[in-house]
Design a binder for these strands. Structure first.
Length: 574
RNA sequence: UGGGGUAUAGCGUAAAGGCAGCGCAGCUGGCUCUGAACCAGUUAGUCGGGGUUCGAAUCCCUGUACCCCAGCCA
């Protein structure tokens, strides 16, 4: 096609419409193409199909938010379906944790909570159909023999000697497999496809194995269990899923699902594969996460340093912050790695809008206001959230002796340092201007007390004469402060890719020894005594914090979700 | 070295033959009762080689790199 810039149709269209053309990701494109062709009668129905054999992590969050988001965006439905086809690895404990995490993320399956195991009877009937068509057979080869006869990338597999059993014999044997007549591993049901296929998945894949293992939902009803490849496409078909969104490694299984569904002549969903999430400074494999938990490198699956959904929740992440994260990273088929800062930034973005501001001193030293009346106390008004006026204000108490952050005083300060130093004036947030006069040190030369004089004319933090101060520091009144433990979390690993095969040694050698710093004697403003698990706070000038589940009324514990951005640290380095 | 995928700035992600754009990170500056937030500006990119075309990230050929696949796991 030839066209001049002047007559380009797409450009004309853009000029006509007010809004710029919406850019769709590749999944949205497929959905919209299908909507146009009427392929699924304008239905959109997605699902999240976890196996209940472990805890969900942020990679699953991407999949959940994606699938649920697509359904919601196109007015469709979303199912939660447990892919519980292997009782030897699964447990009801995981079912509950997964439900909790999916719900917390905001993916609403309404009344559509399903289990693959509820379809076992129907799958069995489908298998019988395939046997009757001559497309499946009972095979007596051992697992090892099957492996040996599968062939390699360059040489075709060799057909099983049982491949040409009669339909009657197969029917009889399959029934007896179900009835529990044979021991584990002695027989399988295999699809009769093509032992020479370049796609290993089509070299007569196993559909059923014998497993005399009780199922967490089916009890001892079954002696045979369907394999993932046989079951999964059927599950989607049975539920009327239109678009089965999954990760890239299932791409070459798609021809097999297609084969099953076509041979059965049943409803046929469209599978779409996307690249799984990789994040820097963490690991994502179930095996490694399990190892970290089992060997106590972390404090359980919900340790706030873990990339698990429950870990992120305990860390103080919000569902919205994960949705922001997913929107930022997008979705594609390219195998990418997301920088950890993107996740951190997503939670900052959400919490900046929501978190109530509070003052807390993590590494306290005393500030004494020499000219403030002994014994006097007053209440000052502080804004709860400058980003949301509706959050209102609170009162904070103030007196002659306060706690301030050790690092907010420097005896010999560079010019660019805006905080306390002898002779310099700063603002105590929401309180007064104070001018530093001197400091007191202990025998080791550590500063233990800073002495200041305040200007009574600056109450509330503003001066009548309009003079400015460069720095504002936070503080907590010694009279009303509450003590707390504060846990400062940082990245779990100190290299971007702990899994990099070029690394020396094991991924565990790269654990960040400073990923958790416990601060025992933190001083918090009194209002923090009422904190509950769902609250999100910004400790001003420090970071975002949330109450830990181990906190008690008498012994509060706060977790740092993420620090505030800190441009001073860059200046200080220069 | 059989098959299936994927390559656009430091990291992600758009552009459906027509000005390579956006977010994050970086850098400058502004504003500020949080060295936060916010605002403005700015650096930097089509894997290589051919071809088709007035015009190619896009189409064709060819090469390269990376990911996935030989469980009775999912």
């Amino acid at each position: 096609m030839t066209s001049t810039p002047e007559s380009n149709p797409r450009q004309d269209q853009n000029e006509r419409s007010e809004e710029p053309a919406r850019s769709l990701n590749f999944i949205e494109q497929i959905i919209e193409d299908d909507a146009k062709s009427g392929r699924f009668g304008n239905r959109v129905h997605t699902r999240f199909p976890p196996e209940p054999n472990g805890y969900l992590h942020v990679g699953h969050a991407k999949a959940i938010i994606l699938s649920y988001g697509i359904a919601k965006q196109y007015g469709g439905l979303f199912n939660l379906r447990f892919d519980d086809t292997n009782p030897s690895k699964e447990d009801v404990e995981y079912v509950e944790s997964i439900k909790e995490d999916v719900k917390w993320l905001g993916a609403d399956w309404q009344d559509r909570l399903f289990f693959a195991s509820d379809y076992f009877e129907q799958m069995y009937e489908y298998a019988v159909q395939l046997i009757k068509k001559g497309k499946a057979y009972v095979c007596d080869l051992t697992a090892e023999q099957i492996r040996e006869t599968r062939g390699t990338a360059t040489v075709p597999g060799t057909p099983s000697p049982y491949r040409d059993r009669s339909v009657e014999e197969n029917l009889d044997l399959f029934k007896r497999m179900r009835d529990g007549e044979f021991p584990d591993g002695s027989k399988t049901l295999r699809a009769k496809i093509d032992m020479a296929s370049p796609n290993f998945n089509l070299r007569d894949p196993v559909m059923y194995r014998i497993l005399h293992t009780p199922h967490h939902r089916q009890g001892t009803k079954w002696s045979i269990y369907p394999m993932y490849d046989w079951a999964h496409g059927l599950e989607d078909s049975i539920e009327g899923i239109t678009h089965s969104i999954c990760t890239l490694e299932f791409e070459h299984h798609r021809p097999l699902y297609d084969w099953f569904l076509n041979e059965l002549g049943v409803y046929h969903p469209q599978q779409i594969e996307f690249a799984r999430l990789n994040l820097t400074y963490t690991v994502m494999s179930k095996r490694k996460l399990l190892e970290l938990v089992k060997n106590n490198y972390v404090d359980g699956w919900d340790d706030p340093r873990m990339p698990t959904i429950c870990g992120l929740r305990r860390r103080g992440f919000t569902p919205e912050s994960l949705r922001i994260f997913c929107k930022t990273i997008g979705v594609a088929k390219f195998n990418s790695t997301i920088e950890a800062t993107v996740l951190e930034n997503a939670v900052r973005e959400d919490l900046n809008k929501k978190a109530l501001r509070r003052m807390a001193v993590l590494d306290p030293i005393k500030l004494v206001i020499d000219n403030y009346p002994e014994g006097q106390t007053e209440k000052l008004v502080a804004v709860n959230n400058p980003e949301n006026e509706a959050d209102g204000v609170r009162e904070v108490s103030f007196s002659k002796t306060l706690y301030i952050e050790r690092e907010d005083f420097m005896e010999d300060a560079p010019k660019k340092y805006y905080r306390l130093s002898p002779g310099r004036e700063v603002r105590l947030r929401y309180a007064y201007y104070v001018t530093c006069k001197s400091c007191v040190k202990d025998a080791d030369g550590n500063v233990v007390e800073v002495h200041c004089e305040y200007d009574p004319e600056t109450r509330g933090g503003q001066s009548a004469d309009g003079r400015r101060v460069q720095g504002t520091i936070h503080w907590v009144d010694t009279q009303t402060a509450i003590d707390a433990e504060v846990r400062l979390y940082d990245r779990l690993f100190n290299v971007p890719n702990p899994d990099d095969p070029d690394n020396l040694g094991d991924y565990k050698d790269y654990l960040n020894p400073e990923s958790l710093k416990v601060v025992k004697g933190a001083k918090l403003e009194a209002a923090l005594a009422d904190a509950s698990l769902d609250d999100r706070f910004q400790f001003e000038r420090i970071g975002y914090f949330t109450l830990d589940k181990t906190a008690t009324k008498d012994a509060p514990v706060f977790n740092r979700t993420v620090s505030l951005r800190d441009s001073w640290s860059k200046v200080a380095k220069k």
